[in-house]
């Protein structure tokens, strides 16, 4: 215990210094550094909040090896924009009140934020949001992806999302049978 005391104190001092800063530095898998408001990071990401509270934030850049620089830039951009926005109170709710997860429609800026992304960037961002425990960003990105599927046939969805049709003719026929009632009779 005695031996560790000195190290523990140094650690304590480092933590205090870290706590004084109002930004944290994040490092992408390809080594790029990004600075983000500590308050916004802690509020929007459960994982970053845990790291900040637990003192595992590195002054020289906290390693986020799972996130590439393009996605991390979008994450940081989102946090900064969120910090500057005034939330609206609009909620979607069904007439039945026991809706378990009422979804708050994306704000105008959130909509623009996801609309400008390429498909690949959206894919990377939704994964990053999931990894960092960013509930709102995950909600907004998943909502955007669902809009890209809405009203589309399986063929159209494959085209939009670069998906290979891995069904055999027989398997597709089987699904069509189950769902036969949903299509016009030929």
């Amino acid at each position: 215990m005695e031996v560790d005391k000195g190290k523990g104190e140094a650690e304590e001092t480092r933590k205090v210094a870290e706590a004084d800063r109002d930004t944290v530095t994040l490092k992408s898998s390809d080594g790029k550094l990004f600075e983000v408001s500590k308050e916004a990071a802690a509020r929007l990401s459960t994982v970053l909040a845990g790291m900040i509270a637990g003192g595992s934030i590195d002054d020289n850049g906290t390693d986020l090896k799972q996130i590439g620089s393009e996605a991390l830039e979008n994450v940081v951009d989102y946090c900064n924009k969120h910090a500057n926005s005034i939330p609206s109170a609009a909620l979607i709710s069904s007439s039945i009140s026991f809706n378990t997860a009422p979804f708050k429609e994306p704000e105008e800026w959130e909509r623009k934020f996801v609309d400008r992304l390429s498909h690949d960037a959206l894919f990377d961002l939704v994964e990053a949001a999931n990894f960092l425990g960013m509930e709102r960003l995950l909600d907004v990105t998943c909502h955007k992806i669902s809009e890209m599927m809405k009203g589309k046939s399986p063929d159209q969805i494959r085209e939009v999302f670069n998906i290979k049709n891995d069904y055999t003719k027989e398997e597709l026929e089987e699904i069509r049978q189950e769902l036969a009632w949903a299509f016009y009779d030929d």
Partner: peptide
Amino acid sequence: KRTLAVRDWAELPSDILLDVFLHL
């Protein structure tokens, strides 16, 4: 070429895909 979809969306993690499906 970055704007073209290169990622294979069939590989989207299932917990994320479920979130998308719940929206849909």
